[in-house]
Design a protein around this nucleic acid. Structure first.
Length: 300
DNA sequence: TTCCAGGGGTAGA
DNA sequence: TCTACCCATGGA
């Protein structure tokens, strides 16, 4: 789905998103906006991100909504097509959710989803960054996830010239060129460090191309199996990544899912019971669960 | 000190 | 397929 680039000025790019897109709902679709190099301002409904472009230049992007259009402000003359492409990936603007909304409209329990224009998830510009962040959510608290992400970025990411306290997310090369012991000591990721360091090395030396995972021609079950071969990625993390890649047939069962469903059913539930509960939503069960989860989370 | 968090890997049954 | 156990970290 092409996105019309309406206006390009010196420091602003205005984009017209699909009619079924909500900036607010996508921003609040899960916790990613709280992980650096995203910097959220919920009061102003604004998302800032520090980004390293393909040229190596590091810049600050400020993304807001203006009269139904996405406004991307950059502090410097940036490469507009690259900034626009990054924005499209982060907000899944090229991902059609019309079929999902049509499905939800037929179910009174899901009718609020198309009404609110939910259905897209905030993503990272690269699959590599999403992989790392998903691994950093496993078997830890959210506060530790944000702390580990911050340590990786501040230790290995490129500095923003105009504010040296801010950094971009590190490239695979920037992590791979660091000896493992140094990486582990600086990042303090626990047992996750080896999985992440190995992933960075494999991507940096070209033996693994994570961006291939975006190929829509890869059957969903094949893609899931490929993702599960990555070290540190299990069923939960794979289901998360599948959602960010626009595949919604897997439920990312975590402790929150078990707690929420146990409260609803009145008894402790196993992972199998969570899967069985959402299985009725078929190819959309991953998205249905995500917005069920965040509806309750935001209310808490 | 012990438990546990937006689990994963492995071995054994 | 299921269960049990271990895995680093750090806050409660």
């Amino acid at each position: 789905m092409p996105i019309a680039c309406v206006t390009i000025s010196n420091m602003q790019i205005l984009m017209s998103p699909p009619k079924d897109f909500s900036f607010y709902e996508t921003l609040h679709s899960h916790g990613w906006r709280h992980l650096q190099p995203f910097i959220p301002d919920d009061e102003k409904n604004c998302l800032t991100r520090i980004e390293r472009l393909s040229t190596g230049n590091v810049m600050k992007m400020e993304i807001t909504e203006e009269d139904g259009r996405l406004s991307v402000q950059t502090e410097d003359q940036a490469d507009a097509p690259e900034v626009e492409a990054i924005t499209r990936r982060m907000f899944q603007l090229d991902h059609s959710i019309a079929t999902f909304h049509a499905y939800c409209e037929r179910d009174p329990h899901l009718a609020h989803i198309p009404r609110l224009k939910q259905g897209r998830l905030l993503c990272s510009p690269t699959v590599f960054e999403d992989c790392l962040k998903v691994i950093l959510t496993t078997n830890t608290t959210w506060s530790q996830t944000t702390a580990m992400t911050e340590r990786i970025i501040n230790s290995f990411g490129s500095v923003l010239p105009s504010d040296t306290s801010l950094h971009a997310f590190p490239t695979p090369q920037q992590i791979a060129e660091t000896p493992f012991d140094d990486f582990a000591a600086a990042s303090r990721l626990g047992y996750r460090a080896s999985a992440i360091h190995t992933l960075a090395i494999d991507v940096a030396n070209g033996t693994l191309d994570l961006e291939d995972f975006r190929d829509p021609d890869i059957p969903t079950d094949i893609l899931c199996k490929r993702i599960l071969t990555l070290k540190g990625i299990g069923p939960y993390a794979a289901a998360c990544l599948m959602l960010y890649l626009g595949r919604s047939g897997k439920v990312n069962v975590d402790s929150v899912a078990r707690t929420l469903l146990a409260g609803e059913l009145g008894h402790p539930v196993s992972d199998r019971e969570v899967h069985d509960f959402f299985a009725k939503y078929g190819e959309w069960q991953g998205l249905v669960y995500n917005f069920y989860r965040w509806k309750h989370n935001e209310a808490a």
